[in-house]
Design a binder for these strands. Structure first.
Lengths: 201, 201
DNA sequence: ATTATATTATATCGATCACTACAAAATATA
DNA sequence: TATATTTTGTAGTGATCGATATAATATAAT
């Protein structure tokens, strides 16, 4: 009864797709580097439509961050949760980090949060707390996967899930930083096996 | 014979100090977020002086990056090289990373390269290669310190210096990212002992 | 058909951006 | 003292920034 057609001229854009496009533009150019012209042209709408839908540039930016953080835009996490074997999960997580930070659809390298949003943490209101939330939420999911492996007997009962989740997450930052600097996927995959050992003990 | 006084009105600023100030401004606001007004006011000069000395904003930015990378502005590296014992060196390196990424004179959190310059890697010409150079130069110095410890018998002859240098460097990115997100120094120091073990085997 | 509603596209707004022309000021040299 | 040289401070430049007022357009309801 509420999914029926609405009165008035129909929108010519999809909100989620627009947010996804906005993420990609911000990812490539940064918050200050991305102009309203960049954003509206990429989304395919005119400024008034953008302002009616998202408020202003700052609000759009925060919405883009939330969209990225919530929408499984960070594929490595999904892979990590879905792999049935824990060692394969860790391996695929790190592999996927390398893939998505070197070949993302946005054309940008690295990670949206750590290679781009981080710059605005002290400048744009609310960004720092969004970053912290994203970190906590990600670590929580990493820990949960380790705990699942423990309950299934894949990992010992004394396996320090929280510690290893943090370790894996921090190592990830190194990879996406290298990717942003232009390091090749191949060069980053070299040490991967050793890292898996370290993470799983 | 060439350190004598120069003809013409004397400059009222020091080039190195100006570059240091520029680093701090860029660190806080990012490349696009830092306006010429921000920069000239912080340095204490007028726009024409800045342009005569540094060319333009983009060139100043690249010079600031080089200044930061070359001038031991990254204190953890210096500490790592100076500590006589290798375990203390690793410990002090990580400790110093946490200190300088949470309490820097610029007022900004994180690391200039990974929390700020990274954003402009695909946008400002030459930045990506400067980042890569900084990574390679840093890793070379880390490796050299490990090799020194090997030659002094502190580490076994089979210690994989290159691998551990990369590991330590990548873990560092995690710390500075957390710092940028507002994580406290105390919360980051918790896992530190474990990390030292991992790095030194 | 007419009306109400919602989104569109056009054409801008003042403010700020990076940058510079110009002349006064401060030094060394002649 | 006079001249050459260099940097300074003032006062702007056109361009682009984020954001909007206005009116045309496209739908549903009457």
């Amino acid at each position: 009864m509420n999914t029926t057609k609405k009165v008035g001229r129909p929108k010519k854009f999809d909100r989620d797709q627009a947010l996804n496009t906005a993420v990609n533009v911000f990812w490539r150019k940064g918050y200050d580097g991305a102009s309203l012209t960049d954003l509206t042209k990429a989304i395919g709408i005119n400024p008034p439509s953008l302002y009616a839908e998202f408020g202003d540039k700052e609000k759009l930016y925060r919405l883009a961050i939330e969209h990225y953080a919530s929408n499984d835009a960070c594929k490595p996490l999904v892979v990590f949760e879905d792999q049935p074997q824990i060692r394969a999960a860790v391996s695929e997580f790190l592999n996927e980090v390398i893939v998505y930070s070197t070949r993302h659809e946005s054309g940008a390298k690295g990670c949206f949060l750590s290679s781009c949003v981080a710059t605005t943490a002290g400048e744009v209101e609310g960004v720092q707390s969004l970053m912290k939330k994203a970190i906590e939420s990600t670590e929580k999911r990493l820990v949960a996967r380790f705990e699942k492996a423990k309950s299934e007997g894949e990992l010992g009962a004394d396996f320090p899930s929280k510690q290893r989740a943090r370790l894996m997450f921090d190592l990830r930052q190194g990879l996406v930083f290298r990717a942003r600097a232009g390091c090749s996927a191949a060069s980053m995959k070299k040490e991967l096996e050793r890292w898996i050992d370290i993470i799983l003990d």
